[in-house]
Design a protein around this nucleic acid. Structure first.
Lengths: 287, 287
DNA sequence: CCTCTTATCTAAATTCTTTTCATAATCTGC
DNA sequence: GCAGATTATGAAAAGAATTTAGATAAGAGG
């Protein structure tokens, strides 16, 4: 766990002096990260040794170590603590969006459960047919992306973003099939119904969604992503970045399940692209 | 510019001693970031003052400042310098993918030109109709995403991922229309032809692509993204994250061009979603 | 009200960092 | 190829910063 999370966690167990130090850290990050132990102590109205002890308490070797940890988290964590700007200047907008995206990835990674993903990857690689479901802009992108990443591995996969089709596919699913569906909100009831139908047909269902949600509860396996959303309605949801990363990880783990087959298929795709373009084989695997 | 970029930039202007220091920094980041000036000097076989001077040369106040800068970049920069693991353990795969994605965002942000994006945003907001073009998995996702972000702002936009349709649309474009096309490789010659056709018809063209590429050259405005690609064929391109961020930024800047209209449209969409679901208006704007 | 524990400080010791100055190496223009 | 200038580097000293050690104060529990 990173240092800021630790500070926020233990905040109520801190002594008076420690609380004062923590407050400065959380409020004036910029100062804290550049301050010497004397300066920090002065500002918190405590003695330097108290600061040293504070660092030790947070599992840091010494003040220097503590500062390194702080600086490391700062890059991704700073904006998360201090709500982002509402500036409409292009440079600020860009910074805000990039930082939020990085934050989303960071928080996702923190909560990520490798074993669960591995189980899903094994399921996918053994599936007779994979159907990727999702609706409404964000999740439909994830469904498409699942298809885009998995077909490259030589798997049989089809994305479907249409409710009616989803229901028909779910009803027609076979026991060896897997239905993987995404819902950022977890409240896509049509997807819940499709999952239920698919399970009745004996197929395996995988949800990419919020934990404690109807969608997650309806599936055999749930890979959950719970991120706070910003409240600026103009800002597109940075959660997409986390979902996209999850798709990448799943695709990658699935590839390793049957490496030989994946390699062959990828080579065929690459060959086709290179032949079709201009012979530069450093090109991307698909535009 | 960040410290690692600065080091890599000036590397050939370094003296012998400085080169030795730089080498340690670039190769053993973990050591460097935790080392005291004495330890670092010892390992580089130079004297501590030389390290201090090295830091100053890189526009740092002192060694402490230098270390902070180093630690800040480390979080995103470390893996970029030291090629990622080839481990297939789920946790390592996840870390590698997340770090690469964060790196992509970081590098993109570094090279990002806010003014150019602003010009494009103005163009988009004034367009009669916007067509988003892209093909081949990655770029088609970007085209879809452009549509998904821009329609919410009350703009007229249509994504098209089909070459033949693209050509017909380009031919039929009007002077007040904008065609925005994505190509990660920059070598999508069909897109180049569509741009040419559209320009002949008097429409404005915008490329999201590599600089120095055929696609970028063919458009009126080019927003370029140049990122190194990893060489693990199983790893999906992390460049997607950068393109996605660019779309977000563009959509956001465009929204601010005509804030009133965008707000109204977004509210309508939200109202529809809330009415359709369960009244929790903290839900995401679209699943 | 006393004792024990915990929190905190002062002062000293230690370690780290920078400055200063001397020397060595390298370059420049003749 | 050499004198003078410039630059690079290190040793030692000075100056900070950090930690340790021991002392004191504050609070909890009997």
């Amino acid at each position: 766990m990173d240092i800021l999370a630790r500070i926020q966690n233990e905040q109520d167990q801190f002594s008076q002096s420690e609380k004062r130090i923590a407050e400065i850290l959380l409020n004036d990050f910029d100062f804290a990260v550049n301050a010497s132990i004397v300066e920090l102590a002065e500002r918190a109205e405590v003695s330097p040794p108290t600061v040293t002890r504070f660092c030790r308490r947070l599992n840091c070797q010494n003040y220097a170590d503590f500062k390194i940890q702080l600086a490391k988290t700062m890059f991704v964590g700073a904006r998360y603590l201090n709500p982002g700007t509402r500036s409409t200047a292009p440079a600020d907008v860009a910074e805000d969006i990039v930082t939020k995206a990085q934050n989303a990835l960071y928080l996702f990674h923190h909560a990520f459960k490798p074993e669960q993903a591995q189980v899903v990857a094994e399921t996918l690689s053994r599936s007779g047919m994979i159907y990727a479901f999702g609706s409404g802009g964000n999740s439909s992108m994830i469904a498409q992306e699942l298809q885009n990443r998995l077909f490259r591995l030589g798997l049989r996969v089809s994305a479907c973003t249409d409710h009616h089709m989803q229901m028909m596919i779910a009803a027609a699913a076979r026991p060896e099939d897997t239905i993987i569906g995404s819902s950022f909100s977890g409240r896509n009831m049509e997807l819940v119904r499709a999952f239920t139908l698919a399970r009745e047909a004996g197929a395996t269902t995988v949800a990419l969604s919020q934990s404690d949600s109807a969608v997650a509860a309806a599936a055999d396996h749930a890979l959950t992503i719970d991120l706070p959303e910003g409240d600026n309605i103009f800002r597109p949801t940075s959660t997409r970045f986390a979902y996209l990363a999850l798709v990448d990880i799943l695709a990658n783990l699935t590839a390793y399940q049957n490496r030989a087959q994946a390699t062959v298929t990828l080579r065929h795709i690459k060959h086709q692209l290179v032949a079709h373009r201009d012979g530069d084989d450093r090109q991307l695997l698909g535009d």
